[in-house]
Amino acid sequence: MDKNIQNILDKILAGNASKEEVSMLNDWSKEAKENLQELNKIKDLNHSIDQSATLQAFDSEVAFDRLNSKMENPASSWKKYLLYALWIILFIVTYTSISHFWNKMGDEQKPNIEMAATNTILEEKLPDGTDVSIGLNSKLEILDNRKVRLNGLANFNVTKNPKNPFVVELNHGNITVLGTEFSVFTSQNKEEMYLKEGKIKYTTTNKVQVELKPGDYVTVTDGNVVFLKNVPDNLKNAFNYPLKYTKTNLSQVLDDLGKHYNVKVQNNSNQNLDSMNFSGKLDEDNLKNVLADLSGIYNLEFKLQNDEILISQK
């Protein structure tokens, strides 16, 4: 750049350029694009210097000291802590109320413990110490410490507690127990129970009450309670598998199987099962295999269909 022009630019910035010099500079700026840019740059700088001169003065030292005290000792800090405290209190209140609410919900909707034996016998100790064996395809629901509901076959050895009797809810009644060992079978149409020792009280849904003494065997059909002397093997030795038979009539055997596996028996053949005898033991844990064995022995077809043993002609 021309030294002369530079001088004039400096003079413009300094504010002491003459009129001639200004017009000279204007002519120069028209000569080239760069010149115009340079002139505009100088004008821009000059404007900023002028603007800078109009700025108000502020004491930044004093301001910094003021700010510093705020930073070290913020005036709003107690408000902040109060806010934190409020949030914490709100959280605790919400949390406790929600958990309380859920606990309450939980108490109301707490599902009963359910024990179901499908293809093996289940032997359990209940919370009160009572030993229970649950037969195949049978289900035991624990309603509370001393109250259960049974569907199917089970043997109980109840812990003694005279103050709090043990109750078994059945399909057609209740058994109240003080402390004893007994077996019970319950299904949609029939209930059977056998008392080994102690004393149990049976109450049907129609409020008929009977007391069983050791060795008693009771069947309940349509609300009729019948004491029988001939105790079926499967209840007497409820969970002593395999089932052993000597010249036992076939209908009894099938009845036992039905109880053992908790299935119904349906005879569709024209043969009287009472007139047929069975000797031997059924030691298969799988009902299908047992039925296949029986099918091999007799001139009958034993089939399992929808929880039902169907007997038909071959």
Binding site: L55, Q56, F58, S60, A63, F64
Partner: peptide
């Protein structure tokens, strides 16, 4: 206060910000 970056920024811009 130890943050020199902040101190530098403060010293050089406080007046400007106030004016703004």
């Amino acid at each position: 206060m130890k943050d020199t970056r902040f101190k530098y920024f403060f010293d050089n811009h406080y007046q400007l910000l106030c004016n703004y």
